[in-house]
C-alpha cells in the first residue's frame, strides 16, 4: 500500500540515497537499521516531502507521485496520508499537549473543534497521558513529550506513521515508556516505518527489517533472518558493532 521506487537524493556532492526501493504492506512494521549516514533518516524525510528527492516515485493508497515533479497539492495529499514522529519530538511549544494533538485535525483538516478534542483526548489517553492534556511541552519530560508526539501522529489516523529515531534523544531511563507505547501502536496493526537503533524492539516487533548502508538497501528480511543469519558481510560487520557480545572473556 506504500511503495517507493528508485529514490535518489543528493546533498551537494554527497549522494545520500542511490536508488532505494521500499514496499510496505498495510499493518506491517518495517524497521530500518544501518550505520549513521546510511540514508535512513533522509529516506523517511523524503517520503513526506520534508526533503525533496531528486528522482523516484511514491505510491500511497491511490496517490502516485514522481518526487521531483510533485505539485503542492500532491505533496499535501501525500502528507495527509503520512505522519511523522521526530527524534527531537518537535512539539509546538506555544500549545498544550492537547493543542499539539488537535492542531493537525483542526487547522489542516478542518475537523470541528469538539470532534477533534474528543479524538485528541482519546489518543492522549492511549499513550498514557490523559492527565497531561493541559501541560505545555516545557512541563513534560522527554519521554512524555515523545508520547505526545506519537499521539499527534496517531490522531491523524494516517496510512503510515514514520518514526525517525524516536528514542535517540531520550535519557536511557525514559526509552522504555516510549518503546512500550510504540509496541502498543504496532499491536493495533497501524502501519509503521521505524528508523531506530533499538535492536530489541526490532527483534520483538518488526515484521521486516531493512539494513541500509551507503545509500542503498543491503539486505532485508524477517528480524531473525537479519539479526541471527545475515547473508551480507556489511550487515554482519554492522551487527558486530551494535549488538552486545554474547560471551565475555576476562
Amino acid at each position: 500500500m506504500i511503495e517507493i521506487r528508485d529514490i535518489h537524493k543528493t546533498f551537494g556532492h554527497n549522494l545520500v540515497l542511490k536508488g532505494v526501493d521500499l514496499k510496505v504492506d498495510k499493518g506491517e512494521v518495517v524497521v530500518i537499521v544501518g550505520p549513521s549516514g546510511s540514508g535512513k533518516t533522509t529516506l523517511l524525510r523524503c517520503i513526506n516531502f520534508l526533503e525533496r528527492a531528486d528522482a523516484g516515485e511514491i505510491s500511497i493508497g491511490d496517490t502516485h507521485v514522481a518526487f521531483r515533479q510533485a505539485t503542492a497539492r500532491q505533496v499535501s495529499t501525500i502528507r495527509k496520508q503520512t505522519a511523522m514522529v521526530f527524534q527531537n519530538y518537535n512539539l509546538f511549544n506555544n500549545m498544550t499537549a492537547l493543542g499539539n494533538v488537535m492542531e493537525g485535525l483542526v487547522t489542516a483538516r478542518k475537523v470541528p473543534k469538539k470532534e477533534a478534542e474528543a479524538v485528541s483526548r482519546a489518543v492522549l489517553d492511549q499513550v498514557g497521558l490523559a492527565d497531561k492534556c493541559d501541560a505545555y511541552p516545557s512541563q513534560l519530560s522527554g519521554g512524555q513529550q515523545q508520547r505526545v508526539g506519537i499521539a499527534r501522529a496517531l490522531a491523524l489516523n494516517p496510512e503510515v506513521i514514520l518514526f525517525d529515531e524516536p528514542t535517540s534523544a531520550l535519557d536511557p531511563e525514559l526509552v522504555g515508556e516510549v518503546l512500550s507505547v510504540m509496541k502498543a501502536v504496532a499491536r493495533k496493526h497501524i502501519t509503521m516505518v521505524v528508523v531506530t537503533h533499538e535492536m530489541s524492539f526490532a527483534l520483538e516487533i518488526a515484521s521486516r527489517v531493512i539494513f541500509m548502508d551507503g545509500g542503498v538497501v543491503v539486505e532485508e528480511g524477517a528480524p531473525q533472518e537479519i539479526f541471527l543469519r545475515p547473508k551480507e558481510e556489511r550487515t554482519r560487520q554492522f551487527l558486530r558493532r551494535i549488538l552486545p557480545e554474547t560471551d565475555y572473556t576476562i
Binding site: T82, F92, R109
Partner: peptide, 23 residues
C-alpha cells in the same frame, strides 16, 4: 524558533502560512 517545529507543522498538514500564523 526551532525549525523542527515548522517541520512538524508541515508533517501534520499545515501550509506555510498556517505554520507561520499558528506556530
Amino acid at each position: 524558533v526551532p525549525s523542527g517545529q515548522a517541520e512538524a507543522a508541515y508533517a501534520v498538514g499545515l501550509t506555510r502560512l498556517q505554520c507561520f500564523r499558528r506556530i
